[in-house]
Design a protein around this nucleic acid. Structure first.
Length: 284
DNA sequence: ACTACGTCCTGCTTGC
DNA sequence: TGCAAGCAGGACGTAG
């Protein structure tokens, strides 16, 4: 799982090990991870080779590395992406997709089994890549506007889980955090945004932040380099989940078995007692 | 403008 | 034992 706290841990690793380095050579080993770079793999390599990395930034689950050209390498880890810093000559990982040879500092490697993630060069994107300008700030961004979020949720008729997953409302919340935050907030994901009270949404936002902070606490201590374990899961997901993936297990608050239902080609998990289904309103 | 859904990927798990 | 279907899921494109 590539959730926001894990991406933040990767960002910190990049800041520690890659920022300030010059890229001497770039090898794109599979075309798919650079599919968003429309000019192609050769152009991707040409725009990054010889450049120095000036920073490591993040919004939601996107990462970008501002370069001394004013461009930025924009990346998303998708489901299974990893950024690894390895000594030059270390054996290639099975799913190694892009290799950046750093001047005197080993290699930065983008490894991605399932290739939902990818890299591209954003022209002039050092400050904020245009490709992600439409994405809302994430809940740990100091400039996140809580009141605007509350208003945006209460304006929408969709179920609140769907709203949480909408990148234009808030970024960085995935299926796992959505379910966990809704469990904490005792809200059913199908409750329409328009029918939530202001305090419901404020509490939900606090719970989104609470789940992320808890995960970051654990993730931040587990990885001090860029390495994320092979399954891509931090200890947080093994021990601290209350709803996600817990089908049949007793709810830690009330003991009722957690329920799983299909949702957007994936699953939602919730406690049917703590998070009661919204009453269906008769058509009028 | 808002809303909803299919699609892309691979490998592990499940079921017959 | 073997094979196929199911499942995981972020973000984008497209249709309604």
């Amino acid at each position: 799982m590539r959730e926001l706290p894990e991406v933040e841990v990767v960002r910190r690793g990049l800041e520690a090990h890659v920022v300030g380095r010059r890229i001497d050579r770039v090898d794109v080993l599979h075309p798919r991870p650079v599919r968003r770079h429309l000019a192609g793999a050769l152009d991707f390599a040409a725009l990054t080779t010889g450049r120095t990395v000036l920073g490591a930034r993040r919004r939601g689950k996107y990462l970008w590395l501002p370069l001394d050209s004013g461009d930025a390498v924009l990346g998303h880890l998708g489901m299974s992406g990893q950024m690894l810093v390895q000594p030059a000559g270390a054996p290639d990982e099975r799913h190694l997709r892009v290799r950046f040879t750093l001047h005197g500092a080993g290699e930065l490697r983008f490894v991605d089994q399932r290739m939902f993630g990818g890299l591209s060069v954003s022209p002039g994107g050092a400050e904020l890549p245009a490709e992600i300008a439409h994405i809302a700030r994430d809940p740990v961004d100091p400039l996140f506007d809580d009141d605007a979020f509350v208003a945006a949720v209460r304006r929408r008729a969709s179920g609140v889980k769907r709203i949480l997953l909408d990148q234009t409302v808030v970024s960085g919340v995935g299926n796992i955090y959505a379910d966990e935050a809704l469990w904490r907030a005792r809200l059913h994901g199908e409750r329409p945004g328009t029918r939530l009270r202001r305090t419901d949404v404020q509490r939900l936002l606090a719970d989104v932040r609470g789940v992320m902070a808890a995960a970051l606490d654990q993730g931040g201590t587990s990885f001090d380099a860029l390495y994320v374990n092979v399954n891509g899961e931090s200890g947080y997901f093994d021990r601290s989940l209350h709803a996600y993936g817990q089908e049949g297990r007793p709810c830690e608050r009330c003991g009722t078995p957690i329920v799983r239902v299909a949702f957007m080609n994936r699953s939602s998990y919730f406690c049917p007692v703590c998070q009661p289904q919204p009453r269906v309103r008769r058509a009028s």
